[in-house]
Computed example of a mutant assay.
Amino acid sequence: MAIPPPPGPERSEGPYPPAAQGPYQGPYQGPYQVWGQGYSPYNRPAPVNGLAIVALVLGILCFLPAVGLVLGIVALAQIRKRGERGKGLAVGGMVMSSLGLALLVLAVATGGVSDFWDGFKGGVNDSARTGTVFSLRKGDCFDEPGDSSKSVAVHVDKVPCAGRHHAEVIANFAMSGAGYPGRGSLRDVADAKCRTFERAYAMDAWAVPDDVRLYHFIPTRDSWNLGRHSIICMLESGDGKSGLKGSLRKDGFTLNADQFAYLQAVDTLDVALRAAPAATHVDDDLRGYKEWATSVSVALDDEAHLLRGHGWFPAAEKPVATLVDDVEASREEWTKAAAATDADTFSAHFEKGLKLIDPRGTVTARKVLGLTTTPPSNDGGGGSRDNGGSGGGLEV
């Protein structure tokens, strides 16, 4: 026997009215709502106020505390108005800025700011002035603290060259090689190269005081093993007490074109005159004196060509031309001395040639060119300043 189905809802018989159709209704409606562009099913958090962040940063750094306090107040007003986040940041910045402002007022009232600034300036000046010997560079002026007569030096105080100072650096060059060359070898190199650097740095030898001597720093074995291979050449006060005043630098960095051209020309002769034989009398080394005369004659010829080849300003043309005439006349005498067969003939031409290049004959040209016009008292005849070699040095 068939079991009848459970009773269901009563339904009416007859036709059913069609469901209402919208103008965009498709054949199937899914169970999920479709979100159009520009809408999101999730709630976005409110943005953090930018001024609140800035106020907190200024408060933490104690930088411009008054500004940090004002920005915190403005940030709170914007947060209330716009519904933004960051109230805690703004309040924290205001608190810390207020503390910083209070400390600043206290420091000003007690003079703490002035003390801090003075100490800061002093620290900067000390760090700029004080250093090791190895920090010295060409053109630096410095003092040696303590006993400058000791054989080993490490620390120096850099000072402005315009004021009183102990020494002035004329060159800083590095030695090559891995092994320590030895003290004697380093001193020989320093003596030779520092003399060359002196001529290039202080081209106007007349401007260098008579009591100034050439000095140098050479590395010790320990410094060498640490990679410090520099030799430092300097000019210093001869007595080590009175010091130098003003820079001794006279080179292409400080001279004008005419001054540089003149000093470059006369340096050619100065170098040759310094190479005189060691023998006191011509009779003792006639051959050596004749070779020397030949080199001086060549140097005089080079000097004349350099002086004639430069385009001088009008006021300098005549005194320089007169100087060139003397140089060429002197060259003829030195050439004759180089060809002499006996000491008397050599001496006669040597004396005439030397007289024609007397330093006092260059004073007029020097004055017009704006160079020093007082010859050094130890002048050797050609305007050079030769104190017999390097004054020695210290190990560093």
Rank of each mutant, 00 (worst) to 15 (best):
P9Q: 12
E10K: 15
S12P: 10
S12E: 13
Q25E: 12
Y28W: 11
V34H: 12
Q37H: 08
S40I: 05
P41Y: 01
P41S: 06
R44Y: 15
P47E: 04
V54G: 01
L61T: 15
G68L: 04
I73H: 04
I73S: 08
V74I: 15
V74M: 15
A75D: 01
I79T: 01
I79C: 02
K81S: 15
G88V: 09
A90Q: 04
A90P: 03
G92N: 08
L104Y: 08
L104W: 07
F116R: 13
W117C: 08
F120D: 07
F120L: 15
N125R: 15
S127T: 15
A128T: 13
S135P: 10
L136N: 02
G139L: 02
D143I: 04
P145T: 14
D147Y: 08
D147F: 07
V159Q: 06
V159A: 04
R164C: 02
R164W: 02
A167N: 07
E168I: 00
V169L: 02
M175S: 15
S185L: 10
R187C: 00
D191M: 03
K193R: 13
T196P: 00
A200E: 01
Y201E: 00
Y201L: 00
A202L: 02
M203D: 02
D204S: 06
D204K: 04
W206P: 02
P209Y: 06
R221F: 00
D222E: 14
S223Y: 15
W224P: 03
S230N: 14
C233T: 01
D239H: 01
S242P: 07
L244I: 02
L244P: 01
G246T: 07
R249P: 01
F253M: 13
D258C: 04
F260I: 04
V271I: 14
L273F: 09
A276R: 14
A279N: 07
V282L: 05
Y289H: 09
E291A: 12
T294Y: 12
D301M: 03
E303I: 03
H305L: 14
G309I: 11
P314D: 11
A315W: 05
E317W: 06
V327P: 03
K336F: 05
A339D: 13
A340T: 04
T341C: 01
E351A: 15
E351H: 14
E351T: 15
K352M: 03
K355R: 12
L356V: 01
P359M: 08
V363M: 10
V368L: 10
V368G: 11
T374F: 09
N378C: 14
D379R: 10
G382D: 05
G393Q: 06
L394A: 14
